[in-house]
Amino acid sequence: MQNVIETQGLCKTYGNHFAVQQLDLAVPEGCVYGFIGPNGAGKSTTMKMLLGLIAPSAGKVLLLGKEMNPRNRLALLRQTGSLIESPSGYGHLTGQENLEIVAGLKGVDHREIDRVLEVVHLTDARHRKLRQYSLGMRQRLGIAQALLGSPKLLILDEPTNGLDPAGIQEMRSLIGEMPARCGTTVLISSHLLGEMEQLVQQVGILNQGKLLFQGPLAQLQQHSRGDVLLRLLYPQRGLQWMADNGIRCRRENDTLVLPPMEEDALAQLVQALAARGAGVVGVATRTRSLEEIFLRLTEGKEVA
Protein backbone atom coordinates (compact mmCIF):
# COMPACT_ATOMS: atom_id res chain seq x y z
CA MET A 1 0.00 0.00 0.00
CA GLN A 2 1.22 3.45 -0.93
CA ASN A 3 1.81 6.02 1.77
CA VAL A 4 -0.26 9.11 1.19
CA ILE A 5 1.82 11.07 3.65
CA GLU A 6 5.46 10.40 4.23
CA THR A 7 8.02 12.53 6.00
CA GLN A 8 11.71 11.83 6.09
CA GLY A 9 13.79 13.23 8.93
CA LEU A 10 11.46 16.18 9.26
CA CYS A 11 12.71 18.87 11.67
CA LYS A 12 11.60 22.30 12.69
CA THR A 13 13.72 24.38 15.01
CA TYR A 14 13.01 27.74 16.55
CA GLY A 15 16.34 29.03 17.81
CA ASN A 16 17.80 26.18 19.82
CA HIS A 17 14.46 24.58 20.45
CA PHE A 18 13.33 21.59 18.43
CA ALA A 19 9.61 21.88 17.79
CA VAL A 20 9.74 18.78 15.61
CA GLN A 21 12.66 16.39 15.59
CA GLN A 22 13.58 13.76 13.00
CA LEU A 23 10.03 12.84 12.23
CA ASP A 24 9.35 9.89 9.92
CA LEU A 25 5.63 9.76 9.46
CA ALA A 26 4.01 7.12 7.27
CA VAL A 27 0.30 7.39 6.66
CA PRO A 28 -1.02 4.53 4.50
CA GLU A 29 -3.65 5.14 1.87
CA GLY A 30 -7.31 4.85 2.83
CA CYS A 31 -6.97 4.94 6.59
CA VAL A 32 -7.81 7.30 9.38
CA TYR A 33 -4.53 8.09 11.07
CA GLY A 34 -4.65 9.47 14.60
CA PHE A 35 -1.85 11.90 15.31
CA ILE A 36 -1.82 12.02 19.08
CA GLY A 37 0.19 14.05 21.51
CA PRO A 38 -0.15 16.48 24.39
CA ASN A 39 -0.59 20.17 23.67
CA GLY A 40 2.65 21.65 22.42
CA ALA A 41 4.01 18.31 21.19
CA GLY A 42 4.46 19.66 17.68
CA LYS A 43 1.35 18.32 15.98
CA SER A 44 0.23 21.63 14.48
CA THR A 45 3.77 22.47 13.47
CA THR A 46 4.06 19.14 11.68
CA MET A 47 0.72 19.59 9.94
CA LYS A 48 1.72 23.07 8.83
CA MET A 49 4.90 21.66 7.32
CA LEU A 50 2.88 19.01 5.51
CA LEU A 51 0.81 21.76 3.94
CA GLY A 52 3.73 24.03 3.11
CA LEU A 53 2.52 26.71 5.51
CA ILE A 54 5.89 26.68 7.20
CA ALA A 55 9.18 25.51 5.82
CA PRO A 56 10.98 22.53 7.44
CA SER A 57 14.39 23.23 8.96
CA ALA A 58 15.48 19.84 7.65
CA GLY A 59 14.02 16.75 6.05
CA LYS A 60 11.26 16.49 3.51
CA VAL A 61 7.57 15.95 3.09
CA LEU A 62 5.99 13.67 0.49
CA LEU A 63 2.28 13.90 -0.15
CA LEU A 64 0.63 11.45 -2.55
CA GLY A 65 4.08 10.31 -3.59
CA LYS A 66 5.34 13.77 -4.55
CA GLU A 67 7.62 16.07 -2.64
CA MET A 68 6.00 19.15 -1.15
CA ASN A 69 8.04 21.96 -2.67
CA PRO A 70 7.26 25.27 -4.38
CA ARG A 71 6.98 23.47 -7.73
CA ASN A 72 4.50 20.82 -6.61
CA ARG A 73 2.73 22.93 -4.00
CA LEU A 74 -0.34 23.93 -5.99
CA ALA A 75 -0.87 20.50 -7.52
CA LEU A 76 -0.70 18.89 -4.07
CA LEU A 77 -2.90 21.47 -2.38
CA ARG A 78 -5.52 20.88 -5.06
CA GLN A 79 -5.87 17.30 -3.77
CA THR A 80 -5.74 18.21 -0.11
CA GLY A 81 -8.32 19.58 2.28
CA SER A 82 -7.28 20.95 5.63
CA LEU A 83 -8.41 22.49 8.86
CA ILE A 84 -5.51 23.81 10.91
CA GLU A 85 -5.59 25.15 14.48
CA SER A 86 -9.05 26.67 14.39
CA PRO A 87 -11.72 26.93 11.73
CA SER A 88 -11.25 29.86 9.36
CA GLY A 89 -13.86 32.13 7.91
CA TYR A 90 -15.19 35.64 7.54
CA GLY A 91 -17.53 36.65 10.36
CA HIS A 92 -19.54 39.25 8.47
CA LEU A 93 -20.43 36.76 5.74
CA THR A 94 -22.86 33.85 5.77
CA GLY A 95 -21.86 30.20 5.76
CA GLN A 96 -22.86 29.99 2.13
CA GLU A 97 -20.79 33.06 1.17
CA ASN A 98 -17.79 31.70 3.03
CA LEU A 99 -18.02 28.46 1.07
CA GLU A 100 -18.41 30.42 -2.16
CA ILE A 101 -15.11 32.16 -1.46
CA VAL A 102 -13.30 28.89 -0.80
CA ALA A 103 -14.93 27.13 -3.74
CA GLY A 104 -13.90 30.01 -6.00
CA LEU A 105 -10.32 29.89 -4.81
CA LYS A 106 -10.18 26.12 -5.14
CA GLY A 107 -11.71 26.32 -8.59
CA VAL A 108 -14.52 23.99 -7.53
CA ASP A 109 -18.01 24.04 -9.01
CA HIS A 110 -20.43 25.95 -6.78
CA ARG A 111 -22.87 23.01 -6.85
CA GLU A 112 -20.37 21.26 -4.55
CA ILE A 113 -21.43 23.72 -1.84
CA ASP A 114 -24.84 22.09 -1.49
CA ARG A 115 -23.21 18.71 -1.11
CA VAL A 116 -20.73 19.66 1.60
CA LEU A 117 -23.37 21.62 3.52
CA GLU A 118 -25.45 18.48 3.49
CA VAL A 119 -22.57 16.36 4.74
CA VAL A 120 -21.89 18.60 7.75
CA HIS A 121 -25.59 19.28 8.43
CA LEU A 122 -25.41 23.01 7.94
CA THR A 123 -27.89 23.34 5.09
CA ASP A 124 -30.44 25.06 7.32
CA ALA A 125 -27.89 27.50 8.72
CA ARG A 126 -26.28 28.40 5.38
CA HIS A 127 -27.74 31.90 5.26
CA ARG A 128 -26.78 32.84 8.78
CA LYS A 129 -23.69 34.94 9.39
CA LEU A 130 -20.62 33.09 10.55
CA ARG A 131 -20.28 35.24 13.66
CA GLN A 132 -23.65 33.91 14.81
CA TYR A 133 -22.44 30.32 14.51
CA SER A 134 -21.59 28.31 17.60
CA LEU A 135 -18.08 26.88 17.85
CA GLY A 136 -19.39 23.48 16.82
CA MET A 137 -21.01 24.94 13.73
CA ARG A 138 -17.82 26.76 12.84
CA GLN A 139 -15.87 23.53 13.17
CA ARG A 140 -18.35 21.87 10.85
CA LEU A 141 -18.11 24.73 8.37
CA GLY A 142 -14.34 24.32 8.55
CA ILE A 143 -14.76 20.65 7.66
CA ALA A 144 -17.10 21.64 4.82
CA GLN A 145 -14.42 23.99 3.47
CA ALA A 146 -11.91 21.18 3.65
CA LEU A 147 -14.27 18.80 1.87
CA LEU A 148 -14.84 21.11 -1.11
CA GLY A 149 -13.31 19.55 -4.17
CA SER A 150 -13.41 16.00 -2.77
CA PRO A 151 -9.75 15.90 -1.76
CA LYS A 152 -7.82 12.63 -1.62
CA LEU A 153 -6.24 13.70 1.63
CA LEU A 154 -7.77 15.44 4.61
CA ILE A 155 -5.57 17.02 7.28
CA LEU A 156 -7.60 17.95 10.35
CA ASP A 157 -6.03 19.56 13.38
CA GLU A 158 -8.04 18.83 16.53
CA PRO A 159 -11.39 19.09 14.77
CA THR A 160 -13.23 18.03 17.91
CA ASN A 161 -11.80 20.87 20.00
CA GLY A 162 -14.51 22.76 21.79
CA LEU A 163 -17.30 20.44 20.73
CA ASP A 164 -19.83 19.00 23.14
CA PRO A 165 -20.02 15.19 23.46
CA ALA A 166 -22.80 14.93 20.88
CA GLY A 167 -20.78 17.09 18.49
CA ILE A 168 -17.70 14.95 19.04
CA GLN A 169 -19.71 11.82 18.30
CA GLU A 170 -21.09 13.38 15.14
CA MET A 171 -17.66 14.54 14.00
CA ARG A 172 -16.26 11.07 14.62
CA SER A 173 -18.87 9.33 12.52
CA LEU A 174 -18.47 11.94 9.79
CA ILE A 175 -14.71 11.47 9.63
CA GLY A 176 -14.85 7.74 10.18
CA GLU A 177 -16.86 7.14 7.05
CA MET A 178 -14.64 9.27 4.80
CA PRO A 179 -12.27 6.51 3.66
CA ALA A 180 -15.04 4.12 2.71
CA ARG A 181 -17.31 6.76 1.21
CA CYS A 182 -14.86 8.90 -0.75
CA GLY A 183 -11.61 6.94 -0.67
CA THR A 184 -10.13 9.75 1.36
CA THR A 185 -7.16 9.30 3.65
CA VAL A 186 -7.51 11.27 6.86
CA LEU A 187 -4.82 12.56 9.19
CA ILE A 188 -6.45 13.77 12.36
CA SER A 189 -4.74 15.14 15.44
CA SER A 190 -5.90 15.10 19.01
CA HIS A 191 -4.46 15.36 22.50
CA LEU A 192 -6.77 12.60 23.68
CA LEU A 193 -6.03 9.06 22.61
CA GLY A 194 -9.25 7.73 24.11
CA GLU A 195 -11.25 10.05 21.91
CA MET A 196 -9.63 8.60 18.81
CA GLU A 197 -9.90 4.96 19.82
CA GLN A 198 -13.07 4.14 17.92
CA LEU A 199 -12.09 6.19 14.91
CA VAL A 200 -8.55 5.50 13.83
CA GLN A 201 -6.79 2.48 12.37
CA GLN A 202 -3.27 3.88 12.54
CA VAL A 203 -1.71 5.85 15.34
CA GLY A 204 1.30 8.08 15.69
CA ILE A 205 2.18 9.32 19.15
CA LEU A 206 4.17 12.52 19.34
CA ASN A 207 5.77 14.06 22.38
CA GLN A 208 8.19 16.98 22.52
CA GLY A 209 8.58 16.83 18.78
CA LYS A 210 9.51 13.14 18.68
CA LEU A 211 7.50 10.21 17.44
CA LEU A 212 7.22 7.68 20.30
CA PHE A 213 5.08 5.13 18.53
CA GLN A 214 3.73 4.61 15.07
CA GLY A 215 1.70 1.73 13.78
CA PRO A 216 -1.70 0.05 13.76
CA LEU A 217 -3.92 0.79 16.73
CA ALA A 218 -4.14 -2.94 17.42
CA GLN A 219 -0.40 -3.04 18.00
CA LEU A 220 -0.67 -0.31 20.59
CA GLN A 221 -3.55 -2.11 22.25
CA GLN A 222 -1.32 -5.14 22.82
CA HIS A 223 0.48 -3.01 25.32
CA SER A 224 -2.70 -2.73 27.28
CA ARG A 225 -2.33 -6.17 28.94
CA GLY A 226 -1.57 -5.32 32.49
CA ASP A 227 -0.49 -6.93 35.75
CA VAL A 228 -2.01 -10.14 37.10
CA LEU A 229 -3.60 -10.00 40.53
CA LEU A 230 -3.88 -13.18 42.59
CA ARG A 231 -5.87 -13.06 45.80
CA LEU A 232 -4.83 -15.85 48.18
CA LEU A 233 -6.09 -17.10 51.52
CA TYR A 234 -2.49 -17.86 52.52
CA PRO A 235 -0.38 -15.30 50.72
CA GLN A 236 2.77 -16.29 52.66
CA ARG A 237 2.64 -19.79 51.14
CA GLY A 238 2.15 -18.34 47.71
CA LEU A 239 5.05 -15.96 48.17
CA GLN A 240 7.28 -18.83 49.26
CA TRP A 241 6.37 -20.85 46.17
CA MET A 242 7.09 -17.88 43.91
CA ALA A 243 10.48 -17.41 45.51
CA ASP A 244 11.27 -21.12 45.12
CA ASN A 245 10.40 -20.96 41.44
CA GLY A 246 12.14 -17.69 40.76
CA ILE A 247 9.02 -15.74 39.80
CA ARG A 248 9.12 -12.07 40.62
CA CYS A 249 6.08 -10.72 42.38
CA ARG A 250 4.95 -8.14 44.86
CA ARG A 251 2.61 -8.56 47.83
CA GLU A 252 -0.22 -6.15 48.51
CA ASN A 253 -2.08 -7.37 51.64
CA ASP A 254 -3.62 -10.68 50.59
CA THR A 255 -2.89 -10.14 46.91
CA LEU A 256 0.15 -11.00 44.86
CA VAL A 257 0.85 -8.73 41.89
CA LEU A 258 2.62 -10.38 38.96
CA PRO A 259 3.84 -8.91 35.69
CA PRO A 260 1.74 -9.51 32.55
CA MET A 261 1.95 -13.09 31.28
CA GLU A 262 0.47 -15.43 28.69
CA GLU A 263 -2.79 -17.09 29.65
CA ASP A 264 -1.38 -20.67 29.45
CA ALA A 265 1.33 -19.77 31.89
CA LEU A 266 -1.18 -18.14 34.19
CA ALA A 267 -3.40 -21.25 34.23
CA GLN A 268 -0.46 -23.46 35.13
CA LEU A 269 0.64 -21.08 37.82
CA VAL A 270 -2.80 -21.00 39.44
CA GLN A 271 -2.93 -24.79 39.39
CA ALA A 272 0.48 -25.07 41.04
CA LEU A 273 -0.38 -22.53 43.72
CA ALA A 274 -3.62 -24.29 44.51
CA ALA A 275 -1.77 -27.62 44.80
CA ARG A 276 0.61 -25.97 47.20
CA GLY A 277 -2.35 -25.01 49.41
CA ALA A 278 -2.12 -21.25 48.90
CA GLY A 279 -5.92 -21.04 48.64
CA VAL A 280 -6.46 -19.19 45.36
CA VAL A 281 -9.71 -17.28 45.69
CA GLY A 282 -9.39 -14.66 42.99
CA VAL A 283 -7.58 -14.14 39.67
CA ALA A 284 -7.83 -10.83 37.90
CA THR A 285 -5.85 -9.03 35.21
CA ARG A 286 -5.50 -5.33 35.45
CA THR A 287 -6.12 -3.85 32.00
CA ARG A 288 -4.45 -0.65 31.12
CA SER A 289 -6.51 1.85 29.20
CA LEU A 290 -5.08 3.40 26.05
CA GLU A 291 -5.02 6.64 27.94
CA GLU A 292 -2.67 5.09 30.51
CA ILE A 293 -0.43 3.71 27.78
CA PHE A 294 -0.39 7.11 26.17
CA LEU A 295 0.51 8.78 29.44
CA ARG A 296 3.24 6.26 30.13
CA LEU A 297 4.62 6.83 26.64
CA THR A 298 4.55 10.58 26.86
CA GLU A 299 5.95 10.65 30.36
CA GLY A 300 8.95 8.77 29.05
CA LYS A 301 8.20 5.54 30.90
CA GLU A 302 8.63 2.24 29.24
CA VAL A 303 5.55 0.42 28.08
CA ALA A 304 5.65 -2.95 29.79
Binding site: G52, L74, S86, S88, G89, G91, V102, L105
Partner: peptide, 18 residues
Protein backbone atom coordinates in the same frame (compact mmCIF):
# COMPACT_ATOMS: atom_id res chain seq x y z
CA UNK B 1 -7.54 42.45 8.69
CA UNK B 2 -10.01 39.98 7.22
CA UNK B 3 -7.15 37.46 7.04
CA UNK B 4 -5.50 38.39 10.35
CA UNK B 5 -8.74 37.66 12.17
CA UNK B 6 -10.15 34.18 12.46
CA UNK B 7 -7.11 32.13 11.40
CA UNK B 8 -7.72 32.94 7.77
CA UNK B 9 -4.04 32.94 6.89
CA UNK B 10 -4.18 29.16 7.13
CA UNK B 11 -7.10 29.16 4.73
CA UNK B 12 -5.73 31.48 2.05
CA UNK B 13 -2.30 29.86 2.13
CA UNK B 14 -3.64 26.34 1.62
CA UNK B 15 -5.89 27.04 -1.34
CA UNK B 16 -4.30 26.12 -4.65
CA UNK B 17 -3.49 29.61 -5.90
CA UNK B 18 -0.06 31.23 -6.18
Amino acid sequence: RLEHLGHNWNLIMTVPVP
